[in-house]
Structure formats: C-alpha cells, structure tokens
Amino acid sequence: MQNLVILAGNVGATPETRTTQGGTKITSFSLATSRPKRDSEGKVLKEGGRRIEETEWHRITCFNGVAKTVAEYVEKGQKVMVRGRIHYTRWTDQENIERYGVEIIADEVTFLSYGKSRQQQQGSTQDNEDDDIPF
C-alpha cells in the first residue's frame, strides 16, 4: 500500500522558510483547491449562471532541494501541482489539551503557472521566444 496525494491548486500566501539546527531547509505554504458544490441529488449548484465552488485549504511542507526551489520561485496566487504524502501529527499544547494536525509532505512541486512577478517580467520583455517554466 502507498500513501500518495496529488493536489493542484492556488498558493494561498508567500511560502515561509526556516532551517533546522541540523541544516535541513523546510518551506511551508498553503494550497487552495476547489470543487463544485452539489445538492442532495448530486447536481452542481449555480448562482447567477455561475457554479458555486467549495474551497479546501491544505498545509504543504517541503524539505531540502524542493524547499529551496519553492522558496525561490513560488508566489501567492501561483498555480502548482503537489505530489507527496499525507502526514498526521498529534501533540499536547501548553494547556495540556491533545491536538491533531494534518499536512502534505511534498516530494514534487510542479509549476502550472508563473508567479505574478515573473508574469510581469515576461510581459515587459520584447523577445518572441516561448519560455518554458524552468522546473
């Protein structure tokens, strides 16, 4: 059996990076995924001709090389696809209450769009070459 997750969505905020005492680079970001909202019969709900969507937020954690690339190139609003695994955590807080959490440990992050700053750079250049996303 395998623990495998693939998510495609929009980055919710600028990724945050930290380094452990042992030198491991860790970058985290939130990812929003959406799906159409359905009624009890399974029909897609619409409002004003547009479908209503439900958004879910996922906490993504990257390590080492993937963490470095994400920290350098990923921006809020960018579309990415994450391939990784689900990781559950349990801890006791300062008030002695047991807490639970879930995150996605990313093995790969594929860029489905450029970040806004890169799009602006692309728009201001005058060459006609097609640029590929570098990763």
Results as ranks from 00 to 15, higher is better:
Ala67Cys: 09
Gly22Asn: 14
Arg38Gln: 14
Arg18Pro: 02
Ile52Val: 15
Val80Gln: 06
Ile104Gln: 03
Thr125Met: 13
Ser117Arg: 13
Gly49His: 10
Ile52Pro: 08
Glu16Ala: 09
Asn128Leu: 15
Gly123Leu: 15
Phe29Leu: 13
Ala67Lys: 08
Gly101Asn: 01
Tyr114His: 05
Asp107Gly: 14
Val44Tyr: 05
Thr89Met: 02
Gly48Phe: 11
His87Tyr: 11
Leu112Thr: 01
Gly23Trp: 12
Thr61Val: 15
Asn3Cys: 00
Ala106Cys: 08
Arg35Ile: 00
Ala67Asp: 09
Glu41Ile: 00
Gln121Ile: 07
Met1Trp: 04
Lys46Asn: 09
Phe135Gln: 00
Glu41Met: 04
Gly12Pro: 08
Lys37Asp: 10
Ile60Thr: 07
Tyr88Cys: 00
Gly49Arg: 07
Lys76Ile: 04
Asn96Tyr: 04
Ile26Phe: 09
Ile97Met: 09
Gln119Met: 14
Ile6Met: 12
Val82Phe: 09
Gly22Lys: 14
Asp130Tyr: 08
Phe135Ile: 06
Ala71Val: 05
Tyr100Phe: 14
Glu53Ser: 09
Val44Leu: 07
Lys68Val: 08
Ile26Tyr: 08
Ala8Asn: 01
His87Cys: 02
Asp39Ile: 03
Asn128Cys: 01
Val66Arg: 09
Thr125Phe: 09
Glu75Phe: 09
Gly115Phe: 11
Glu47Phe: 10
Ser30Ile: 03
Arg118Trp: 04
Val44Pro: 05
Tyr100Gly: 00
Leu4Asp: 02
Ile86Phe: 14
Ile26Asn: 06
Glu56Cys: 02
Lys79Val: 06
Thr69Gly: 06
Gly42Arg: 11
Asp93Tyr: 06
Ile52Gln: 11
Gly9Val: 01
Val5Asp: 06
Ile52Met: 08
Asn64Glu: 13
Val74Asn: 04
Gly65Thr: 14
Gln121Val: 07
Gly84Lys: 13
Thr33Ala: 02
Glu54Ser: 07
Glu108Lys: 12
Ser113Lys: 11
Gly101Asp: 06
Asp130Trp: 08
Gly23Ile: 11
Asp127His: 13
Val70Ser: 03
Ala32Lys: 04
Leu7His: 05
Phe135Trp: 11
Lys37Gln: 12
Asn64Ala: 12
Leu112Tyr: 02
Ile105Tyr: 06
Gly84Tyr: 13
Val74Phe: 03
Leu7Cys: 01
Ser113Gly: 03
Arg59Trp: 15
Thr17Gln: 10
Gly48Asp: 12
Phe135Met: 06
Pro36Met: 01
Arg90Asn: 09
Gln21Ser: 01
Ile60His: 09
Asn3Glu: 06
Ala71Asp: 15
